[in-house]
Design a protein around this nucleic acid. Structure first.
Ligand code: MN
Ligand code: MN
Ligand code: ZN
Ligand code: ZN
Lengths: 148, 148
DNA sequence: GGCTGGAATGAGAAGATTTCGCATTTAGAA
DNA sequence: TTCTAAATGCGAAATCTTCTCATTCCAGCC
């Protein structure tokens, strides 16, 4: 039961929080903006205020339930935390998102932080490019057409 | 003369563009937001409208004169292009910025894009941590206190 | 099961950053 | 110097996100 997940995370099991968490778990989109969550819940008849979406996602982030990304400037994108850290490669044409893990890069990041005398707390790595489909199509599709 | 740099970049040598370019070259801050450029020019008695700062910096970026970064969400940071690509490590406590180049990471990014079938166009890598000074201080200084 | 205090929510206002629209000015060539 | 397209400055607007605060709800206690 999701109530338990919330309790365990130190959050009261309110209806809006349950709706949002359930939605993130059931959605086939792994990466979603606050606005996208808001609209999707609306369409599902589960109304939650936009301000609450923002608040709850930020709380989920603090609690480690979700991770926040900045694929492109201008807005945050959230994804349910499934344990394993990974980085992202984003199609600049259609917005598609693929995930990857590279232990060599991870290790070298730590090494660099160490060399510079920093105590590393986090990192962000985004590769941008044109995805296989868009290369094939060659067309002018916009980012609005898809996100996965 | 900076006029020549602008002409070479395909930009008319207007007074605002000259002021901005000169300022970027002479400033001891390598990484600056539009707002910071605006205020610094103001203090130097060189008034340029904020909208123009934004327009010109975007043009400079398109012309390859500057690079735009997103160290933290919410606003862009610009830096004069000196030829060599590099990535950044940012102090989450005081905002200090250090630079680094890692050929292994660069190479592996290309390899990952290739494996995923993407034609890589760009990448962004930010390491976040606590800088040597802030680790020593241990204090609660805010980001506003410094940026370098 | 009802009662209650503090936390959470919803709605809209406000904040922050960036872009836009348009009247005015300017660069640069004739 | 004159002229025209391009650039600028200003305020309005767009976008994303947070804040304020009145209202509602959760969770523990009778
Ligand atoms: Mn992901
Ligand atoms: Mn730099
Ligand atoms: Zn694509
Ligand atoms: Zn620091």
């Amino acid at each position: 039961m999701e109530s338990q997940d919330l309790k365990r995370a130190g959050l009261k099991a309110t209806l809006p929080r349950l709706k949002i968490l359930r939605f993130l778990e059931e959605s086939d989109q792994r990466h979603m903006s606050a606005e996208e969550v808001y609209k999707a819940l609306l369409e599902a008849g589960e109304e939650v205020g936009l301000a609450t979406i923002y608040r709850v996602l930020t709380q989920f982030e603090a609690a480690g339930l979700v991770t926040r990304h900045h694929f492109d400037e201008g807005h945050s994108v959230f994804e349910l935390n499934l344990g394993e850290h990974h980085d992202h490669i984003v199609c600049v044409r259609c917005g598609r998102v693929d995930e990857f893990v590279d232990e060599v890069i991870e290790a070298r990041q730590h090494r660099i932080a160490e060399e510079k005398g920093y105590e590393m707390t986090d990192h962000a790595l985004y590769i941008y490019g044109v995805c296989p489909e868009c290369r094939k199509a060659g067309g002018r599709r916009t980012r609005a057409e898809g996100r996965g």
